[in-house]
Structures are given as C-alpha cells and as structure tokens.
C-alpha cells in the first residue's frame, strides 16, 4: 500500500479509508472464506474488522508493522473468536448457504462450481483451526512468512510446518472425497 494513503488514513481521512477498504475487502473476505465460514459470517466479521481498524487507528504504528500485518492481526483475532464461539466446525451448517449468487457463468457451470465450493469448504472445516488459518493467510501475497508468523504468534518454522501439514491433510481429504 502507498505510504501516503496510509498516512492520510491515519490522519482521519474517510476517503483514504474507503480506498483501503476497497483494496483489502477481497483478501479479507477470501480469508474468512478459506476458513470455511459462510458468506454472511464473513461479511459480518469483515465489517467488524474494518470498523476496528478505523476506530483503533491510533494503535497502529507504521514503524512496527505493515498495515496488512496489522489488519490481518485484527482479522485473525476476530476469526479465531468466531470459530471458538461456533464450538468448532461441527456446529456450522455444512451446506452451501449464500454462495450460489455467483451469477456470471451459465447455470450448469454454476452448479458445478457451487458443488466444488461445498466439497472444498467441508474439507477445510475438517482441518485443525491453526493449520487452516495459516493456509488461509498464505494465499494473500502482501503477507510474507514473517508477517504470518507475527499474526499467528508463532515462529516462522512453525508456520512452514503448519502450512505443509495443512496442504497434505487437505489433499488427502479432497482425494477421499472424490472417490
């Protein structure tokens, strides 16, 4: 992100903040999606995260961390709380609620896509929370290994290990699903 935009946001400029939300909404929502949350939950949590970013802007120290790292620390915190509150994955509805509004492709493609999403989501929900979170963070290009380690509060080596474990487990789950 541009430093100028960040400092405008830190000075309390709403337009700058809107640009930041515009820029980060996709990665944040995608992160919640990869955690296996529903669209409604993701939307609610993402809103909450951005509102916290705005109200707690004075706690952000550009000298200490990048904005992405700080934002995702907040996002991660909210996500972990939400997952704990939902009493692990089993209480989450294992359906495809709210995801099929993808209206661009043709109907049968859409059904196929929705089916794949359902399979993937169910597989993700079976991963341990920490592994799932590392995996979900790893897809966002602005976060490197060190940043993920900070967000997760563990070492870089632990991040690598969790990532590896998550990929193996996910592949196995998806392959079993296919058969």
């Amino acid at each position: 992100m541009h430093d100028q935009l960040i400092s405008r946001f830190l000075c309390g400029e709403r337009a700058a903040f809107a640009e930041l939300v515009e820029h980060y909404q996709r990665p944040v929502i995608a992160y919640f999606g990869r955690l296996g949350l529903s669209a409604a939950e993701a939307d609610e949590l993402a809103q909450e995260a951005f509102i916290r970013v705005w109200t707690n802007a004075d706690r952000f120290d550009p000298g200490r961390a990048s904005l992405a790292t700080w934002l995702f620390s907040i996002v991660h915190h909210l996500a972990v709380n939400a997952l704990n509150r939902a009493d692990r994955r089993y209480c989450l509805p294992l359906d495809a609620a709210g995801e099929a509004i993808d209206d661009s492709p043709g109907p049968e493609v859409a059904t196929q896509l929705a089916e794949r999403k359902r399979i993937l989501r169910n597989a993700l929900r079976q991963l341990p929370t920490v592994d799932r979170s590392v995996l979900a963070l790893s897809y966002f290009r602005e976060l490197d290994l060190a940043a993920i380690a900070r967000i997760e509060g563990c070492s870089e080596a632990a991040v690598k290990q969790r990532l590896y474990r998550a990929r193996i487990a996910l592949r196995r789950l998806l392959e079993n699903r296919h058969d």
Binding site: Q25, P27, A30, R34, A39, A46, R121, Y139
Partner: peptide, 13 residues
Amino acid sequence: LERGLLDPPADFV
C-alpha cells in the same frame, strides 16, 4: 482456494 471461495458483496465498502 486462491480465489478464496467468497467474494465481497458489491456494496461492502
């Protein structure tokens, strides 16, 4: 996974 399963709603911002 890369796309993230979910897209932000149009009126999110």
